[in-house]
Every structure is written in structure tokens, then in C-alpha cells.
Design a binder for these strands. Structure first.
Length: 383
DNA sequence: CTGTCATTAGTCAGACAG
DNA sequence: ATTACTGTCTGACTAATG
């Protein structure tokens, strides 16, 4: 009986920034942003007071990872370049990201939710879907209990949406943020969902939104009225059908509690754009380092890769990728580097390089690996 | 035998998200 | 001196296969 599904989406409020405020409670109520690769941690001055880096003092190519709601009010959002945000909010406090702490609180809040409702789908560090269908408790009471438990365990607030499916719950968790609960019945689709902007649907990003805009479609309700054939014409079969269903609140995706990774990657942006010949040595060091880091990641997770790919971002932000699929899965840094080098040969290197990345795809568990009999069969002298 | 069509794998770009 | 890093998915195209 999948018709009685009850799915929650839980989203931690301004997660990274909120975790930082646990360490620096005196910053509560201030505009704070987290980000920057070499941002200085707060230090204690001669008077024994903590001093913080200000956005206006930032120099570099970093972006904002998260900002507090006070900072967002100044027009400063995640993804924005720090140099640019410094113009908007020069006085805002800048803190370095501390991913170990975020992972700790991530595990903590997920374990806390799991003690109440165990069917959880991980959606990254700060959000989850929860299948509440088989729990015998009224929705509002259950949502409050989950929220209180998370607050107790972590000192952090979250927002929760509950509806018959993931699509609607994701929209709902955002409707009363921060620290809110939104419960939606499918009968309320037209009144509460259709008035919302189309881009509130998870999966409609800036590009699709602009395309819809040009078709005269601005709200989810307008999208629901559009002919599916027309959507298919403009967005392709799969995306077109999905858009139509989404606008009607239809989503059968299950809450997936376990999954295998499809790819692993490592990439880095240089302090300055590197010249292929002039900075050859540095480029080669970084390249090797990325390959070995990727090999470590593969080893830690127990995978080998049949496909190795590289990514280069030029000084003008143009991105190119190249892939190579090899007959036998790789997992050593050196063999990954060899494959990646093959890929690198196939790209133009006539411009300065901003970013270099290496990727491993078509992953196979190491345990399933068929150790090729080395030199077992000699090459035949004929075809 | 040749051309066409369907299917699949591989490659690359790009959108999207957290 | 504006624009990170990691991962998933889809669409378009090509080549190989039947």
C-alpha cells in the first residue's frame, strides 16, 4: 500500500555556520560567513579577547560555503566569491571551514533521528529523507519529537517538511525556515504548492528555470497546466515527463537507505593560473598528488576503477574533460596516473590552467576483482 | 551484398545539488 | 583578483555490433 506513504525531509538550518556558532557563541546574531581556503581561525589578542577575520580583509579566490541568516540579509549567499561578498558586507565575520566538526555533527544528528525513525536516506552532510510510513504516531507530534531530539543532541535547529513523497517534502522543509515544521496533504497541492515559483522544485536550476520563463511558465501551477508533449519537445523525453509529473506532485522514488558510489574524484584550484610549460614541475606534482589521493580514497572505500578521467578548467573558466576506459580495473596511484596522463595528452594545453582534477568511474568492489593471470598466456604471434 | 535500423558502450559537455 | 569541491544524472554524439 504505497498510497499511504509519509515521507519527511529534514534540513539543518545554516548548518556549517550554526556549528561554528557552537564554538563562538558570542557571534550569535552577527553576519558570519564560512569559507576561503586559507582563512585564518580566530585568535586571542593581548587583552584576552577573541579577534576574528573580517570579510573586507580577505584576499584570494575562495567562495562562501555557508552564511548565517544575518549575512544572507546583506545579500551574501553560498557560492558567491569572497572578494565580491566583501563589497556587500565588509564587516561580516569570516571563519574557516572545519569539515571535521561538520562531519561530527552530521553523524550526531543522523544517529539521533535514526533512534526515532531508522529509515533514513542520506542526502549529503546536512539533510536527510526519512520514511515515517510505518511509525504509529501522529505526524505533527513525531516531527516535533525528531526536531527536539536533534536540538537536544546537537544544540542545532533544523526544518522539517512532511508529505506523501520526497519531492513535496523537500519543497515543504524550505517553506518555514529556519526552525519550522510544514506538513502537507496531497489535497493541498493546488493551494500551497502551485503558487510557488517553478524553481522551488528540486532539479529545476537556473538554466531550466530560464527556459521555462521564456515559455511563459513561472509557477509550479503554470507548469502543471503545460502540455507534456510541449515539455518533452523542449527538455527531452525523460526531463519533460518528469517536469509534468513533478508539477502534479507525483513522485514515487523510494527512500534509499544504502547506495554504492558511482565515481570518486579529486580536484584543486591553483592559487594562480598555471602555465603549462613555465609551471610544468608544479603542475606535475599536483597531478601526481591528486592521483595518489584518489587512489587512497579508492583503497579506503574498497573500489577499483575501470574508467579514469581528468578535468581541466582554463583561465577563462572553460572546462574540458577526457575519459579513458581500461580493460582491467585500476586502484594504484601510479596506474591511475598513467591512465590520467593518456587523457591529458588529448586536451589542448595552449592556455593557462586554473583547475586540475582526476576522476575514477565505473567502480568495482576490490573484493570482486578478478586478478588477471599475469603473463599467464603469452601473446600469440599471429592474429 | 548493401543499406538501414536498433541497441549498447564509450566519451564529452553541461545542469544541478549540497 | 570573482566564481570551491564532490558527486549524480541526462543529452548528444560516435563507434561498434548485429
Amino acid at each position: 500500500m504505497p498510497s499511504s506513504r509519509r515521507i519527511a525531509h529534514l534540513d539543518m538550518d545554516a548548518f556549517f555556520a550554526s556549528v561554528e556558532l557552537l564554538s563562538y557563541p558570542e557571534l550569535k546574531g552577527h553576519a558570519v560567513v564560512v569559507g576561503g581556503r586559507s582563512t585564518e581561525a580566530p585568535s586571542i589578542n593581548a587583552q584576552g579577547e577573541r579577534t576574528y577575520a573580517r570579510l573586507r580583509d580577505y584576499v584570494g579566490r575562495g567562495v562562501i560555503t555557508t552564511s548565517t541568516y544575518e549575512a544572507r540579509a546583506l545579500g551574501v549567499f553560498s557560492g558567491m566569491g569572497l572578494m565580491k561578498s566583501a563589497v556587500l558586507a565588509p564587516e561580516a565575520i569570516l571563519l574557516p571551514a572545519n569539515f571535521e566538526a561538520y562531519r561530527h555533527y552530521s553523524r550526531l544528528f543522523k544517529a539521533t533521528v535514526a533512534s526515532i525513525a531508522p529509515l533514513i536516506e542520506d542526502r549529503g552532510i546536512d539533510e536527510i529523507y526519512i520514511d515515517l510510513s510505518d511509525i504509529d504516531e501522529e505526524t505533527e507530534s513525531l516531527a516535533k519529537r525528531i526536531k527536539n531530539a536533534v536540538s537536544q543532541a546537537t544544540g542545532l535547529s533544523c526544518s522539517i517538511g512532511v508529505s506523501p513523497n520526497k519531492l513535496l517534502s523537500k519543497i515543504c522543509s524550505d517553506l518555514d525556515k529556519p526552525n519550522g515544521i510544514t506538513i502537507l496533504a496531497s489535497t493541498e497541492l493546488a493551494t500551497r504548492i502551485w503558487p510557488l515559483a517553478a524553481k522551488k522544485i528540486n532539479g529545476i536550476g537556473p538554466k531550466a528555470n530560464e527556459k521555462l520563463d521564456k515559455l511563459g511558465i513561472h509557477t509550479i501551477g503554470e507548469l502543471a497546466l503545460a502540455a507534456p508533449e510541449m515539455l518533452i519537445e523542449h527538455f527531452g523525453r525523460s526531463t519533460g515527463q518528469w517536469l509534468h509529473q513533478a508539477a502534479h506532485g507525483i513522485d514515487d522514488r523510494p527512500v534509499v537507505t544504502t547506495s554504492e558510489p558511482k565515481s570518486l574524484s579529486r580536484e584543486t584550484t591553483f592559487e594562480r593560473d598555471l602555465h603549462v610549460k613555465q609551471d610544468r614541475t608544479r603542475l606535475s606534482e599536483v597531478f601526481t598528488e591528486l592521483c595518489h589521493r584518489l587512489a587512497e580514497d579508492l583503497a579506503r572505500k574498497g573500489y577499483a576503477a575501470k574508467t579514469i578521467g581528468i578535468k581541466v578548467k582554463y583561465a577563462d573558466f572553460q572546462v574540458v574533460t577526457r575519459d579513458l576506459t581500461v580493460p582491467d580495473a585500476l586502484h594504484h596511484g601510479t596506474s591511475i596516473r598513467n591512465a590520467a596522463t593518456e587523457c591529458l595528452r588529448r586536451i589542448p594545453l595552449d592556455q593557462r590552467i586554473r583547475l586540475l582534477g582526476v576522476r575514477a568511474g565505473s567502480l568495482l568492489p576490490i573484493s570482486s576483482l578478478n586478478q588477471a593471470p599475469v603473463g599467464h598466456q603469452p601473446d600469440l604471434p599471429f592474429e
